[in-house]
Design a protein around this nucleic acid. Structure first.
Lengths: 244, 244
DNA sequence: CGCAATCACTTCCCTAGGGAAGCTTACAGT
DNA sequence: ACTGTAAGCTTCCCTAGGGAAGTGATTGCG
């Protein structure tokens, strides 16, 4: 039913979590594991590879594999499971502004354009129920020769931009996360006091030729959104039990 | 020299990045790939598995494998590559306070203790050169029966807590990231105006039995620290060229 | 025409080996 | 005592298949 390599992954993970294999210590060789689990080397190797790039173990060629000691810095935060959620039933998007303007120096620099080039300027407000939650500002290049723009311009289904459902996805991009205080304008829109803390999610999307296509940022109310990561071994309970 | 599966991963990645394989479209079957790259099914499968859990492709049993359309939410932020850095030559740690006190209600709740139990209270300041950068507050359970405490108590090498070098690592934990405004005390220590924005990194570490061992948080000056993630296909340049 | 069975194609899992390359240790020769 | 070598570990990579299970189109039968 369940793949053998998955059972092996879980078993070893459990042993690490429960302290049978301690951080830093060497664990049995591949040959020994093959004998214990009664599988071929290839299958065992597959299990180890999974643990390897989960970062739970650490292999040194010719010496052995070891339990990797974990530190705070091993945390990974997935934007996918942002607490506060991106979209659910109560979510609605309100378009505050959409126009084409000439790029300011700052915008032109970010988008690698000549100053004064035409760009599309967008401002959206995402509401959870009645409450403003995110404020989104974005500048998109306006170049008839590049076909990407129109897909970007379908405004309301912000969802498409977030989780790449349909065509309006970008092949590449850079996203940076930081904290800041709300400006007067952002504070007004988000119905927060000026200077209130917020998470800022700045993004630059690029096309296939690595040219920037859009620059913008989300402002997330600090009281509604946070990121959580779990550190250390985690496994799904397996129904199977040794009946040897 | 270079493993074959790695070359395959890079080649497919490059094709996705350059638009040869478009988002959502089906890519060749495993058999076809085997024929093209002249490798055995197992090797090809290995390459696909890597792309699979990089999230670049998406396989549906019986139907085929497809290029996965990406969205903003696919970003992952690694605490490891925090911009502003955790430790380098100019980093020093100053211990502001270390004492044992009775746990307040809030602390007792977080650590799952009886209110009034003894806990170790720590406050550290991390400096980059002369400049305060992070402020760390932590509560550690004080229980002679649990041996973990002493390793936690070696204060100055904060590095050990961050990247698990030696023994003072915890098997498990939860870390949450959010934005907030500096309290009066934190602002004074970090030499920032009261109410300045900061990233807050709250952490709870647990022992093998999943009992909380320590609770605390880092406050990171918003002007010094941010997290960056790259979205989309990325590959290492391979020196090898087709000479068929 | 409608429905069910078949068949081709797909992803996915596993076996049973061989061999390259790196590290450690023991042992021989100097 | 020291050094170079060889043996025996180790991780790592690859081949060449077989078979299970899911999907979709085609075909044959009522």
């Amino acid at each position: 039913m369940r793949p053998a390599y998955q059972d092996i992954v879980d078993t070893i993970t459990r042993r690490i979590a429960s302290g049978v294999y301690r951080p830093g210590s060497r664990l049995p060789s591949e040959a020994q594991f093959c004998a214990e689990f009664r599988v071929s080397p290839m299958t065992l190797r597959r299990a180890l590879n999974i643990l390897l790039d989960q970062g739970l173990i650490l292999a040194e060629k010719g010496r052995g594999t070891f339990v990797r000691p974990l530190g705070l810095t091993d945390c990974v935060f997935r934007l996918e499971d942002l607490e506060g959620g991106w979209v659910d039933e109560s979510t609605s998007v309100r378009l505050l502004a959409a126009s084409t303007t000439k790029a300011s120096d700052r915008v032109a620099e970010k988008l690698a354009l000549e100053p004064g080039s035409r760009v599309v300027y967008l401002r959206r407000l995402v509401l959870k129920g009645e409450r403003p939650a995110m404020y989104h500002v974005e500048y998109v290049i306006f170049d008839p020769r590049r076909p990407l723009v129109e897909s970007q311009l379908q405004i309301t289904p912000l969802a498409g931009l977030l989780s790449g459902d349909r065509g309006n996805t970008f092949p590449r991009g850079t996203v940076t996360l930081r904290a800041l205080s709300l400006s007067a304008e952002a504070a007004r829109v988000l119905e927060e006091p000026v200077g209130a803390p917020a998470l800022c999610l700045e993004h630059v999307f690029e096309d296939n030729e690595r040219r920037p296509v859009s620059w913008g940022w989300f402002l997330l109310r600090a009281d509604l959104f946070q990121l959580t990561a779990r550190l250390g071994p985690e496994w799904q309970a397996s129904q199977e039990v040794d009946r040897g």
